[in-house]
Design a protein around this nucleic acid. Structure first.
Lengths: 347, 347
DNA sequence: ACAGTTTATGATAGCGCTGTCAATACGGTC
DNA sequence: GACCGTATTGACAGCGCTATCATAAACTGT
């Protein structure tokens, strides 16, 4: 509130407002800019000057104002993060990896959840950009032109995460979901299965699951097998959905499948529960395979056959490359994080 | 970079830097402050002036700089959020509820994860405060004096979430974990069980689980029963830990328990898997009870007896009260969100 | 027609910090 | 002793925006 306080009315300052750098400087008997340099530990400052300033800062319980600092030219230490969902542990894991790496360098994520809604994603992008973050990490809900343009126009480092199958404007860190689907097809075919079905969730939202399905089809075709029934239920993936879905899939199937590939582990665990309740022997009567490598799947009486997707690692690497770029380095544009097929006991 | 550009060197502006309000204003033929009012839709602005400004903003692809806006006096629209962990779906759910409500009002969370480390929590608090957020939502790792002081000194609305058992500096939204433990004790005793054990995870970190254990003990005492074996394994709660833990608990027990109360559903699901693998009939040979009401527990062949903790709702309500306060309202200081005991089929 | 009110716009002065350039002090060199 | 390089400090302007006050223009009622 300008005009409320006189220019040198500092009794007010100390009472009603948080201490400023100027007050710290005065308390330490130096100029503002010297105090700034002392606290940021950059530029030449005499040792005992620095000590005096630091003591004054502690005494006043000074907390720097990074809004002002960033506006004045310092690099922002905020990173915009846009994820499509938090209902599933998958993106929570990614976020954990991101936050952990960022926090280590004093950066903090500003978070946006798009709910797989391109419009909301676009709004989030604008909103987060208005905070002038140092960089952006985004798991695109779906590739849209608007998003692409916004990202291209924004003049800051951007890491697109989760998959490396699509084109990216700047950097990308993730796994090949197509490749994961293919790998699972080859693995299951190698185990001797020939009649396959697929059980998925809301296909319109989770395009990465769709890529796995495409890869799975490709992989089967390569060994001369055709994918049988494909059932995709609306809504997000959950254990109950997988359980009910498998019941429906088996009831509706003309020729019963030997193996079912699920869109992910949540669905597959549901499938395992259905088999257990319905007395279906796994994998003798029916083989099951998932995707993600969640701990829950591995703790089942019969560990789930699945593919570990290294989610926390993806977040960590994404943050690392972003920080590297901010420090002037040249990290790889595309980082294909390895996935790992976990054989398990269900297929 | 002052001094690099002359005061009215605007060809540079349009080329090398993001458009500013001043450029939008010039393009629309109005003053800066009028453009500001038009875009913020506050104060009196003629309809066609507003239209002109908005068209200019779109044409220039203008993204406001909220750092500058907030520094100049506008209320910040960032909210600091500090959570102890993201490994578990519990805090991801809370964060989802928070983000959803905040985003609706144009606010965005800046996130910090403390890993249950009071020192890291303290550093996060200072760091997030340096962004001058409008408010703070924090799930304290553990109550420490330093944290308390920092919160008290920070002159901004603070919501402490997850539990309402401890004192809070400002507002609190959560459930009574003591009460939840008590409720489960009464429920299980009412079902006729008399010999109880408890299986928990890293007790030094998750003090809310400890509160549930305390409440469980209290509840049992109230019906004249004493809690038997208590086993707490180090590390975060996971399904495998629950599975192995139950095996150990049963092997070590002098008199086998009739019912086991787990620190949460992850552990309890692990316990259910152990019983299944070991041929223990549930609940006839052994009853199991958890806490949280995760969907995985409800999708088990026998739905888990547990307590729904309404995590997303807690986040939503916390955000709602924070926003209410920021809008000048007086939300309740303590909001005790109801928990709900889910009978299930395991106890 | 006139004061009194409302509506629309603008001039000015910062918010708290940092980048640039300038100034001072110090020690050593030839 | 004039000269130079280095270490240390400060003056100044400005980042992009908004709060305040002032002004101009368009209404109202009598």
């Amino acid at each position: 509130m300008p005009h409320f306080r006189g220019m040198d009315d500092d009794r007010q300052d100390t009472q009603t407002r948080r201490p400023t750098l100027s007050q710290v400087a005065r308390a330490a008997g130096v100029s503002e800019i010297t105090a700034s340099r002392a606290l940021r530990r950059d530029g030449p400052v005499a040792r005992d000057t620095r000590d005096r300033v630091e003591r004054a800062a502690i005494a006043l319980n000074y907390v720097p104002n990074r809004l002002a600092g960033t506006l004045a030219g310092a690099a922002s230490r905020q990173v915009g993060v846009i994820l499509p969902s938090l209902s599933n542990i998958v993106f929570a894991d990614v976020l954990k990896g991101l936050e952990d790496r960022l926090e280590g360098d004093g950066y903090h994520p500003i978070l946006g959840i798009s709910n797989y809604d391109p419009l909301r994603e676009e709004r989030l992008l604008r909103d987060l950009l208005s905070w002038r973050p140092a960089g952006l990490v985004i798991a695109p809900a779906r590739k849209t032109d608007v998003t692409r343009d916004l990202l291209a126009a924004a003049d800051l480092p951007v890491v697109e995460i989760m998959d490396v199958d699509a084109e990216s404007a700047d950097m990308a860190v993730g796994i090949s979901h197509r490749g994961a689907g293919r790998a699972m097809a080859h693995y299951l075919a190698g185990r001797g299965y020939r009649r396959f079905a697929y059980l998925g969730h809301g296909i319109e939202t989770d395009f990465r699951a769709t890529q796995r399905l495409d890869g799975f089809r490709d992989g089967l075709r390569e060994v001369g097998v055709t994918l049988g029934d494909v059932l995709c239920l609306p809504g997000p993936s959950t254990v109950p959905l997988g359980r009910e879905g498998l019941a429906r899939l088996l009831a509706d199937a003309e020729t019963p499948p030997e193996a079912v590939f699920f869109s992910n582990d949540d669905m597959a665990v549901g499938g395992a529960f259905h088999c257990q309740a319905a007395g279906i022997a796994v994998p003798e009567d029916l083989a099951l395979a998932g995707f993600n490598g969640l701990s829950i799947g591995q703790a089942l009486p019969k560990p789930l056959t699945t593919i570990a997707s290294q989610r926390e690692h993806i977040g960590f690497v994404a943050a690392t490359h972003l920080l590297d770029r901010l420090a002037g380095g040249s990290p790889p544009r595309v980082t294909n994080v390895d996935f790992r097929l976990i054989p398990g006991a269900t297929a």
